[in-house]
Nucleic acid binder design. Structure first.
Length: 616
RNA sequence: GGUCCCGUAGCUCAGUUGGAUAGAGCAUCUGCCUUCUAAGCAGACGGUCACAGGUUCGAGUCCUGUCGGGAUCACCA
């Protein structure tokens, strides 16, 4: 039974029968009726005035009559200013509830046999995860879960940037300054431990640079290369990278280490493995705390040479071209872009070459038909180019590529800057929201008779719900302002607000079970309250919403839906008693309704990685 | 400068793909717990949907331009 489709179908037939014009059911504009009018769904009749020489009101009347006589579900209708409001029979809604209230997987779609990959997280290994990664991970994990709910077979992967100058800086600093300290000997979480040495390197480097600026070499470099009217401060700020490459002792050592790694020097590789191992152990802890897990990790140290074969193939097919200096290019001007280099003149790969190879590798590994990359929007251009190149190569999965671009996470004070120490650490952030939830919980005292372990488990769920919901409710595409004090709010439009609706229902259901609840009496409940209908209407729309969130790769739709459903339930709960309903029939009906609301809230929140507590 | 994204209440965000009088939360103020969990409910206050044109029965939504903010335009990743 699909209520909306039935109405559209009947309305389309009605238009044909009454006005002699063929229209497609999906072209019937059907929207939920606004609260101030009577009805469940509204058909906008204005479009029909194009081919019917009657007033919108007259058309509405005729079509309303038609629907009322031809569709049993339609109990009544009214026409207001060209809007045909359709009132459905209460049995439509009570029938729907009876059919679905016990369906545990309601809202989840049957398998569609398609395999899709979601790439997310994808950190560098020189520093711990921060707020930006948190948005990425939450979006990626939610998207993966939503796609699963929509019937896809999902493969979660990340590509870890485990090589390059950054990790060499950490390695060098550790080698020079640690005195053999380890995460174990210091008691510092292992990814933070490695990050600390990266910071140490930067600190020492700045000191070295500042000292150098006082010397003769610096003076002559400044005089020779300064731009007109440029102060020494400004000049040396811009000169930093050049200093690193051309003058710095630390810079030379770090570059040396990178070369040594690239040539496979056993000692360097061993050190690299040791420090990356620390980082991975720390990441795993953080990812486990957030609730994300992966099917496969790809490492840039293993993929950065890939893709050359595909470039050769493209060359052979004439899709790419080689310049006189030996570099290989693709011309993307036909799709409004530039020329992009694919192989350097020395034959080595660039970033995009590696991504071409990695895409192919993944296809070979998993046979996926679609791939979603969760990567910040600063890489929009890169992914546009990557996808176009894969299309030119006619890769079998190239029609199913999607860049889930998300905006920057800013603080109320502005952009996060590591130099100013304003980067919000992922572990700290989680600890903070959980502490806030703990404080709130102790104040309320509702968990006092549970064991400390149970209390802690609940408090974690509440804190993480606040954090996750706060981030996921924002449309991915938009950049967002993250206010730490708001993220720990437990009231209003928040994760805990939704958990609370669930907890209230569970509490009622527990009591009902003690009393022994009457099941079949609900069938006799004939006249529904407006708020009951609203809840069921909302439940009815859930599967479509899941499909839409999957199609648009947008978890914020699920967050918004869960909030609206919880809000509707809170109001219903406030206005109507469940266990002390007017009749046995009403009580049984409301128990079923509440049960299904709880079920759907749990399913929806599960899709965005939020677990529900039984009590709070 | 070229391209892309964003601009909605004091703040943080929705707005079902063009439908009715633009909605929530936070903040401020006011009510509601001897009654199923008050992390709740109700009310008040708060808007030139950045601006100007256009398309049409109808525009926050589509088109053009302007202003403001961000990103990006490497043989870096």
């Amino acid at each position: 039974m699909d209520i909306i489709k039935n109405i559209q179908q009947a309305a389309a037939e009605g238009v044909t029968a009454l006005f002699g014009q063929a229209v497609q059911p999906q072209d019937i504009a059907l929207t939920p009726t606004r609260k101030e009018f009577a009805g469940d769904y509204t058909i906008v009749v204005f479009p029909f005035t194009k081919f019917v020489k009657k007033s919108p009101d007259a058309i509405g009347q005729e079509l309303g009559e038609y629907l009322k006589t031809h569709l049993p579900a339609v109990a009544d209708f009214n026409v207001v200013k060209g809007f045909l409001n359709i009132v459905l029979s209460d049995t439509v809604w009570s029938g729907f509830l009876e059919e679905h209230f016990a369906q545990a997987d309601y809202g989840r779609h049957a398998s569609n046999g398609e395999k899709v990959m979601v790439e997310y997280c994808s950190p560098n290994t020189n520093k711990p995860l921060h707020l930006g990664h948190v948005r990425n991970i939450l979006l990626g994990e939610s998207t993966a879960r939503i796609l699963e709910a929509a019937g896809y077979d999902v493969v979660r992967v990340q590509i870890i940037n485990d090589r390059g100058i950054a990790i060499c800086k950490s390695m060098l600093a550790w080698q020079k300054f640690s005195g053999g300290a380890t995460p174990e000997s210091t008691g510092i979480k292992s990814d933070h431990f490695v990050g600390d040495y990266y910071v140490e390197f930067e600190k020492r480097f700045r000191e070295e640079y500042a000292e150098w600026q006082q010397g003769e070499t610096a003076g002559s470099v400044y005089e020779a290369q300064k731009k007109e009217g440029q102060s020494p401060e400004q000049f040396f700020k811009d000169y930093k990278d050049k200093y690193f490459n051309e003058h710095s002792a630390l810079g030379r050592e770090a570059s040396e280490m990178l070369r040594s790694w690239e040539s496979g020097d056993p000692e360097t590789v061993a050190l690299w493995k040791k420090m990356n191992g620390w980082v991975y152990a720390g990441f795993e802890e953080t990812l486990a705390a957030i609730g994300a897990s992966f099917d496969k990790y790809y490492y840039e140290s293993e993929t950065y040479l890939l893709g050359k074969g595909m470039v050769e193939k493209g060359l052979a097919e004439g899709v790419f071209h080689k310049k006189d200096d030996g570099s290989v290019w693709v011309n993307l001007e036909d799709v409004g872009m530039d020329q992009k280099v694919l192989l350097r003149r020395d034959g080595t790969s660039v970033y995009i070459t590696q991504d071409l190879g990695t895409a192919r590798l993944r296809y070979d590994d998993f046979g996926i038909s679609r791939m979603a990359y969760v990567v910040a929007d600063e890489q929009n251009y890169h992914f546009q180019a990557l996808f176009e190149v894969l299309k030119k190569l006619q890769e079998p999965y190239s029609g199913g590529l999607y860049h889930l671009a998300y905006g920057m996470v800013n603080l109320p004070s502005g952009r996060m800057k590591s130099r100013e120490g304003t980067v919000v650490d992922a572990d700290d952030l989680m600890a903070e929201v959980i502490a806030e939830a703990r404080a709130g919980s102790q104040e309320r005292g509702a968990l006092a008779d549970l064991s400390p372990e149970e209390q802690e488990s609940i408090v974690r769920r509440i804190g993480l719900a606040a954090l996750k919901f706060h981030i996921i409710k924002v449309t991915p595409r938009k950049s967002m302002v993250f206010d730490p004090t708001e993220s720990v709010d437990l009231q209003g439009q928040t994760g805990p607000y939704i958990q609370n609706a669930y907890v209230r229902i569970r509490s009622v259901l527990r009591k009902a079970e003690e009393d022994g609840m009457g099941g079949s009496a609900s069938q006799e409940y004939a006249v529904l309250q407006e708020q009951e209908k609203e809840l069921i209407r909302s439940l009815y729309e859930f599967p479509d919403l899941v499909a839409r969130a999957a199609a648009e790769y947008d978890p914020s739709h699920i967050a918004g839906y869960a909030y609206n459903l919880a809000k509707a339930f809170h109001k219903f709960y406030h206005d109507h008693s469940i266990l002390r309903a007017e009749s046995e029939a009403a009580k049984a009906f409301r128990l079923k309704l509440s049960r299904m609301v709880a079920q759907v809230l749990q399913t929806a929140m599960g899709m965005i990685g939020i677990e529900m507590p039984e009590k709070m």
